[in-house]
Design a protein around this nucleic acid. Structure first.
Lengths: 232, 232
DNA sequence: CGGACCATTGATTTAGATCAAGGTTAGTGG
DNA sequence: CCACTAACCTTGATCTAAATCAATGGTCCG
């Protein structure tokens, strides 16, 4: 944890920096933006740098402004379990913020990343003054919760093969295209889907043999038979 | 969906009914309670009755006042996947409320159950007037999210045996005692943990043989060797 | 250019699912 | 209150999907 605080940057710089807050913290008057500026600090991280780790305590809300952050746990056996990837506009650290309990997971920057940081007091004060914003935050929470619960259903009720197929379809939907690039390494995909890199490799090869997908390079995939994948 | 609205009950009755809101909606002045009363309707369900199902749309927040509600999905194969059990004070329906998308899961009363029902408009207005409450709701969200993410880690990184053991330890912690009653049928436990009733049976029998637990009746368990269970 | 990490493919093993058949419990209705 | 039925639980035998172990090739980054 070494957030470099730049409390003396110009308001204009901060506004630019806080542009990622817009999806959540919108409905703001220009004069209100100044309050966010004072409530927010910025922190910068290099690729591979840890933002926080399990056991750390920090009553701060982190909002990704630029870059990519990986959230994961380490199991007893030392296996890394990927929870999710955060893109600009996503936030993290909310549990520590609300309950004060220490983190039980790790956050690491996957590339050059800039964060906005808010303390609990700041958030409290902010929400009291801009109550409508809390609804948007709740909306975001509920979306994440939905995603988590869907993943749980998937993990418990579907076979590994189906999970991998469903994941491909999900990616295609996100990109609104049949060709896309995997957002992470096969190793991480395996961790996310609760399987092993070997199995991911094998299943993708199998899907390709069946003519359902086309792999090119190491991370590019084209869906050829979406229907087949969905009906495994 | 057949909520029986009682909009004409006395304020006193509603206060009693809404006592379960306290964990979330506290910090209220007596005069403010009246607003909740007007914002809330009550609905009553029999054991086994469905509150809503996948596909239904309803922009309402349901808060459990009395009883027990089971939330589950049905997978393609028709397998029931238990998401969670709601006890008094818990709420549901928030995603439909915020995003307007239809439910993708089912909610069924497990016993005689009473709910408080709030529409989106009611919640909006309410939060604008009582912004502090939104922090408590977020807290609740973040707790649920934490639980879901822990379950995901568990499902992906641990073996079935470890999951069952960890679940027993969790139950003991919740009850703050080594003896406790399983909160649901073994069938439902299996569904929750992503396994089958047979495996749950076998593993519990195995744990008992090893002297780690003691089963009595069909739902009572005493932990004898917590350490062994935690270090599978 | 070199080293570390990632990906692929094959051979083997195993945990847990599935299928099957009793025994038990609990909620229902007379 | 008791009897009945349906759902639940348990234990056994078999099967299979995926993990693990292992070895080679590929790719990215310093």
């Amino acid at each position: 944890m070494n957030p470099c605080n730049h409390h003396s940057v110009s308001i204009k710089e901060m506004q630019k920096l806080c542009v990622s807050l817009v999806p959540i913290f919108n409905h703001l008057q220009p004069t209100e933006m100044e309050k966010i500026v004072h409530a927010t600090r910025s922190a910068s991280y290099q690729r591979g740098e840890q933002i926080y780790g399990a056991g750390d305590t920090s009553a701060q809300l982190f909002i990704v402004h630029r870059g990519l952050v990986k959230i994961f746990r380490l199991s007893e056996s030392g296996r890394e379990q990927l929870i999710r990837l955060l893109e600009p506009g996503d936030f993290m650290g909310e549990l520590a913020l609300f309950s004060g309990s220490p983190f039980d997971h790790f956050a690491v920057a996957m590339e050059q990343t800039e964060l906005c940081v808010m303390t609990r007091e700041d958030l409290n004060a902010f929400i009291e003054q801009h109550p409508k914003i809390s609804l948007r935050i709740m909306e975001e929470f509920s979306r994440r919760l939905e995603r988590a619960e869907k993943l749980i259903s998937c993990l418990t009720s579907e076979a590994t093969e189906q999970r991998i197929a469903a994941y491909l379809v999900e990616l295609a939907d996100e990109h609104a295209a049949n060709s896309f690039t995997l957002p992470m390494s096969k190793k991480d995909i395996a961790s996310y889907l609760g399987t092993t890199p070997e199995t991911v490799s094998r299943k993708l090869a199998e899907f390709q043999e069946n003519g359902w997908i086309e792999q090119s390079g190491q991370r590019n995939i084209t869906l050829l038979d979406r229907y087949a994948l969905q009906n495994l």
